[in-house]
């Protein structure tokens, strides 16, 4: 027999009735203190609300009535007997101890780290390969429209030079990846300067400025392989998905404080993004290194042009011009990170 004091609310009026409650094997017997209130309710019709902090415990009764009590031990004994709330009772035990809170914090940090380094990149890769080619093509088309209207002008390269480079490019992509469609186009771009980037559809854009900056075709071949690797490993789509994933993760962690999410959430997002793009650049540069050494070529020319691009880039305020479009922004960041990786 468990006996405890409490307050009874009938759910019809806001009046509080002080009561004494006894629980036997099957029933809850509620008797008014100083009134003729007397109820017997089968235990299976009672719902004990989960414990929370040091707040009073609530038992929901049939027909909208309820009992409240501060006798935590009695309710704990009653819960033990009925086996109710097992899950949230455990949560309550965790919440009640500083040691568990500290462990939760450590667990949280580990989880976020694991998701950021393994979970999100893994899932993004799966998703990127599952996305139909039509979506990638559409996305690339839209991006090109924006780039062409804002930052790119028609190429002024001599026809012969362009055709020679395109022939070299064809040979390279056939050697590396025969299945996917790739094609190379040139654009003049005072805004971007010497630059090259790949779109998920397999279109690779190289600026006239970059061609003019190069001192040998081998240098440009290094850039071709790098961009082909980006397309082949779907880096474009993967980075878009990963950034969305990181945003979701941070929203989940700090979901409680929406007003500061933007300020506090943007820093880790930025850090994670630059971490991811560094990984992609490394993967693309790995392909260059593997392909070149497989042919017995030195990667020296490739390194040289990267260094030259970096030097040249300093004169172009790329980010401020491009920040209106996140995709191009990402492209620019890739290139910057690659430069760092090689240095």
């Amino acid at each position: 027999m468990i006996t405890f004091d409490g307050t009874y609310f009938d759910g019809k009026s806001s009046r509080a009735h002080p009561v004494t409650i006894r629980a036997d094997e099957t029933r809850l017997i509620i008797a008014g203190a100083g009134s003729d209130l007397s109820l017997g309710i089968p235990l299976r019709d009672c719902v004990i609300q989960p414990p929370l902090g040091k707040t009073s415990r609530v038992i929901t009764l049939p027909e909208g009535a309820q009992c409240e009590t501060d006798d935590f031990e009695a309710i704990a004994a009653l819960e033990q007997r009925t086996g109710r709330n097992a899950g949230l009772r455990l949560v309550h035990v965790l919440e009640s101890r500083w040691k568990m809170a500290a462990l939760s914090f450590a667990g949280l940090v580990v989880c976020v780290w694991v998701f950021m380094t393994f979970g999100i990149p893994f899932l993004a890769k799966k998703a990127a390969y599952a996305i139909p080619p039509a979506v990638a093509e559409n996305l690339s088309e839209q991006t090109m429209k924006i780039l062409d209207s804002r930052f790119l002008r028609p190429s002024k390269l001599p026809q012969r030079r362009a055709r020679t480079l395109q022939a070299r490019f064809k040979k390279l992509h056939e050697n590396i990846d025969g299945k996917q469609k790739y094609w190379l186009e040139f654009r003049k771009s005072p805004a971007l300067g010497p630059n090259a980037f790949a779109l998920p559809s397999g279109l690779i854009i190289m600026t006239d400025e970059l061609v003019n900056l190069s001192e040998s075709t081998r240098e440009l071949e290094g850039v071709f392989v790098h961009e082909i690797a980006h397309v082949r490993h779907r880096h474009g789509m993967r980075s878009v998905i990963q950034n969305a994933g990181v945003f979701l993760l941070i929203a989940a962690v700090v979901g409680d404080i929406t007003s500061i999410t933007s300020a506090a959430g943007s820093l880790p997002t930025l850090l994670a993004q630059s971490g991811y793009s560094r990984d992609f650049e490394r993967e693309a540069d790995d392909t260059v290194a593997a392909y070149f050494s497989g042919r017995g070529w030195s990667t020296k020319p490739y390194q040289n042009i990267l260094r030259r691009i970096t030097k040249n880039m300093a004169n172009f305020p790329g980010e401020s011009l491009l920040s209106s479009h996140p995709l191009t922004d990402e492209r620019i960041r890739y290139l910057r990170e690659r430069e760092k990786a090689v240095k």
Partner: peptide, 14 residues
């Protein structure tokens, strides 16, 4: 007390 509730529940959410 609220800190403990918050951190435990955030951890469980993740």
């Amino acid at each position: 007390e609220y800190f403990r509730i918050w951190i435990v529940n955030t951890f469980l959410t993740i």
